[in-house]
Computed example of a mutant assay.
Amino acid sequence: MRLSVVIPAYNEEKNIQFLLRSLKKIIEIDEIIVVDDGSRDRTGELAEKEGVKVIPLKKNYGKGYACFEGFKESRGEVVLFLDADIKFKKEDILALIAPIFNNEADMTVAGFNKFSGKTKGGFGMVKNFARIGLFLFTGIYFH
């Protein structure tokens, strides 16, 4: 299976190159797409310098829209969505995709530390929203 990584990015010039350079070291990744969500800094320019596909949006539409635009352009059978301001170990990414590649799961979700040092953000809300949606569609409560 081919793996595409989609990164919605808004004003992430301080983080984007480090993230992309780290991702390019993971041979399991076939494609990296940065969706520059109307950034007012050099996010898109710096991503292009790293040789990845960049989708520039004329204005900031938000993370969900940016993710969908990247998804539409992705070529992989598996799509990994990553925030532009995360830090991770290669093993983290491999652990996230292994259940999918091993046909043990259709989807995985993980939380990583942010470059900014913040420990809280919208992830709790996202998890709860996803949990409700999954319950409504499957009748199964996920932890």
Rank of each mutant, 00 (worst) to 15 (best):
1 M>V: 03
3 L>K: 09
4 S>Q: 04
5 V>L: 02
5 V>A: 08
7 I>H: 00
8 P>N: 04
9 A>G: 07
10 Y>G: 00
11 N>V: 08
14 K>D: 08
14 K>V: 07
14 K>Q: 06
14 K>H: 05
14 K>N: 09
15 N>D: 12
17 Q>C: 11
17 Q>P: 01
19 L>G: 13
21 R>F: 10
26 I>N: 00
28 E>Q: 13
28 E>T: 04
30 D>H: 12
33 I>N: 00
33 I>A: 00
33 I>P: 13
34 V>D: 05
35 V>Y: 05
38 G>C: 03
39 S>F: 06
40 R>G: 15
41 D>A: 06
45 E>M: 09
45 E>W: 11
45 E>P: 06
47 A>V: 09
48 E>C: 10
49 K>P: 01
50 E>C: 15
51 G>D: 05
51 G>A: 11
53 K>P: 00
54 V>R: 08
55 I>Y: 07
57 L>T: 11
57 L>H: 03
57 L>M: 14
59 K>F: 08
59 K>S: 15
60 N>S: 12
60 N>P: 05
60 N>L: 02
61 Y>D: 01
62 G>H: 08
63 K>A: 14
64 G>K: 14
64 G>N: 13
66 A>V: 10
66 A>P: 10
69 E>N: 05
69 E>T: 04
70 G>H: 02
72 K>S: 13
72 K>N: 13
73 E>L: 13
74 S>T: 02
74 S>A: 12
78 V>W: 01
78 V>L: 04
79 V>T: 03
81 F>Q: 08
82 L>Q: 07
82 L>M: 12
83 D>W: 00
84 A>N: 00
87 K>L: 14
88 F>N: 04
90 K>G: 06
90 K>D: 09
94 L>S: 10
95 A>F: 05
95 A>C: 03
95 A>G: 07
96 L>E: 09
97 I>R: 06
97 I>Y: 00
97 I>S: 03
98 A>F: 11
99 P>D: 02
100 I>C: 10
101 F>C: 02
101 F>I: 14
101 F>G: 00
101 F>V: 13
102 N>M: 10
104 E>M: 05
104 E>I: 10
105 A>K: 12
106 D>Q: 10
106 D>A: 09
106 D>Y: 10
106 D>H: 10
106 D>R: 09
107 M>K: 09
107 M>V: 15
107 M>N: 05
108 T>S: 15
108 T>I: 00
109 V>H: 11
110 A>R: 14
110 A>T: 08
111 G>R: 06
111 G>W: 04
113 N>A: 12
113 N>G: 05
113 N>Y: 11
115 F>A: 06
115 F>I: 15
116 S>Y: 07
118 K>L: 14
121 G>N: 14
123 F>G: 11
123 F>E: 13
123 F>W: 11
124 G>M: 00
125 M>A: 14
128 N>Q: 11
129 F>T: 02
130 A>T: 07
130 A>Q: 05
131 R>W: 03
135 F>K: 11
136 L>R: 14
137 F>A: 11
138 T>H: 09
139 G>C: 09
140 I>W: 01
142 F>C: 00
143 H>P: 01
143 H>D: 07
